[in-house]
Design a protein around this nucleic acid. Sequence first.
DNA 1: ACCTGTCAAGTCTGG
DNA 2: CCAGACTTGACAGGT
Length: 333
Amino acid sequence: MIVRFGYVAMSVTVQNASPSKTMTLSSFNKIGDREAAIRKLERIAAENLHNTLRLLRHNRASDIQVYRFSSKLIPLATHQDLRDWDPFQALAADFAEVGNYVRANKMRVSFHPDHFTVLSTPRPEVLQSSINDLKYHKAMLEAMGLGAEAKNNIHIGGAYGDKVTSGQRFVEQVSALDLSLRERLTLENDDKTFNAVETLEACKLTGLPMVLDIHHQWVNNEGEKPWELWPDILDTWKGELAQAGSSVDHPLPPKIHASSPKSEKDPRGHADGVLVEPLLTFLRNIAGYTDRIDVMLEAKLKDEALFGLMNELRLQEANGVKVLDGASVEIMP
DNA sequence: ACCTGTCAAGTCTGG
DNA sequence: CCAGACTTGACAGGT
């Protein structure tokens, strides 16, 4: 089984390369000339895209093919006060440059719209802003020229005191989405509310591929071992929605998230690095089912955590681990 | 250069 | 019913 590792949004080794620079609403409003304020937003967005490209070049130099973009590439993009603003015209070339680089280097990229995207919500206005947020993420991927193999990963959302009903509402509200939004979704188990078993069920009902977060599963489970769910999780990656647009990398490998508990006191928090042993145990247990998997590392030290994990994996070369390059390994079943 | 409070958005908990 | 926590990088305003 070939395992590729990636990291999220920002690098701790490339300096001054934030892809998430922003502007607060109050400073936007303090600029008297609205046109000038909007041009400033667009300049910040262009800078974020430029830094994203720098990170992608760093990734290529480090053999890293899996990366999650910052959702904050365009400041205030979905804010109500800026409904009349279409930033994509001004940023077309910047987005295209990022997308061209991704395609030229066969990278697997994604977004993770944050916790304001809640498709289980009973409130129509929250549903609408969630859909708007998904449209914004889709628009960015389209501006990059990337097909539906580039996904937006989300959680189910809140339980509102009745998890069963909320789960059903999630399934209904996802099913009612335009295909162009739905085919770009993946669904991840969370660490408090919808556990891996429940998320898998929602994936079966919606056709969405499941991103298993093995840290969330560790702190929120029904007593199952994570690899016991793997055959069913793998099936969610064989559906039409999972494979939509996957012309670049066909079939699209399944993806998981890995991180380690920050401390005993804060087991849900993310540690600086990623412990090799629990991850390796999981990977060995699924190696017989899957020939490729991508692992998104969610660690405080970002790419540094990836390099640290690769060092640990190099020490396991006598134990059925073969390091292939700077960011991928082969695990013998 | 460095520190502290704040930030657009949602949900849950505790008072 | 409302304030604060959650979580987190970066801004904004201060020293």
